[in-house]
Design a protein around this nucleic acid. Sequence first.
DNA 1: CGCTCAGTTGAATTGCGATTCAAATACTGA
DNA 2: TCAGTATTTGAATCGCAATTCAACTGAGCG
Lengths: 201, 201
Amino acid sequence: MTARKSRSDRRIDLIEAARRAIVRHGIDGVHLAHVAEEAGLTSGAVLYHYPDLSELLVEAHHASVERFYEHRMRQISTISDPARKLVTTIRSGLPTGPLDPDVRLLNELGGAAGRNRIYGLLLTTLFDRQVSMYQAILDTGQALGVFDLTAESLTISRNLVALEDAYGYRITARHPLIGPEEAAELILDYARTATGCDLFH
Amino acid sequence: MTARKSRSDRRIDLIEAARRAIVRHGIDGVHLAHVAEEAGLTSGAVLYHYPDLSELLVEAHHASVERFYEHRMRQISTISDPARKLVTTIRSGLPTGPLDPDVRLLNELGGAAGRNRIYGLLLTTLFDRQVSMYQAILDTGQALGVFDLTAESLTISRNLVALEDAYGYRITARHPLIGPEEAAELILDYARTATGCDLFH
DNA sequence: CGCTCAGTTGAATTGCGATTCAAATACTGA
DNA sequence: TCAGTATTTGAATCGCAATTCAACTGAGCG
């Protein structure tokens, strides 16, 4: 038998297992047994902790969104130069490759968001937080005279997040010409004209 | 009983029925019975024409992608002025609202594209065709001296398609602040700076 | 007009995955 | 150490959807 764990520990395990299962089988293709397998348990044990699978899936998505955002914030928190900060932020929003589990999961969420209000809310909330993140960078850069914005920072920020999103999809769908490098370059091209700053890679 | 139809007629019916069923239940949530219901038939009849449901679903997606692209091309084919053409093209790539079935379906495809090579291929192909479509408009505008492009037309085109994609997701996910109008305005803002042309709405 | 057969139905069957639950097991505190 | 409780198992059951198939129907054709 698998080692027993405390309620809260096991729930965290299960959320992680659910994340992996979703990436593997799709948001609507995950079965209880998949989650159990990923967790190294039987389906009965999963049910003991989460009588309703869909509840576990929502928590898994919630955790993913949180994790994705926190990861980005951590990556850029140490940088103070606005130009370098902007470049790093753009990179951190793109998948590392077609298999990047975090972005794969967010993409799964995208399709379901049109049908499921909770998933839609998770995604719109993430979008807005990312927009705020960019806005802070742009406004700071503007204040310091590093950037010369061609439009409101809100507009530019929204477009930057939108571009990240879309190229994330292209990359996970294995576009033969657009990988992480190319996507970053495309977004940077926009960022350069929008900020009037010679952002280097 | 439902009127009998010829093999080819019925197959076309079924593809349309499958499209509606997918929009309603999601790409991984469609059941044989859903398709049958949409077609006004029983599941046995559907199976008679498509022994493998997944094959029908692929055809349905293929038809949707084709239809989406053809629809856009038709909308812009009569316009000759590059500036007006660009504005119209941008509008035609966005959903009419959160319930727009065509975009809903493409979004469903997005999540699955990371797992399913065929779906990935359908989407990347569509992306590339849309990029070419924009490139033709931009190049023509440049040649006529209407546009003064700040980057290669390929770069700008990719970004325009990417922005459409991403805002399509936001709209179907019911972002409270970003509807079709706002999305168009955001994309146009980019198009203006990229073309140096005062595009009006 | 009657034959033929593609197309369709609907009921039976199968198969898969969720759900239940009694039994087994491992931790916990006294 | 031992009682008591929390966790996990695994087998049984349930339920839904796919699949099969024999019977039925109607369009087209001689």
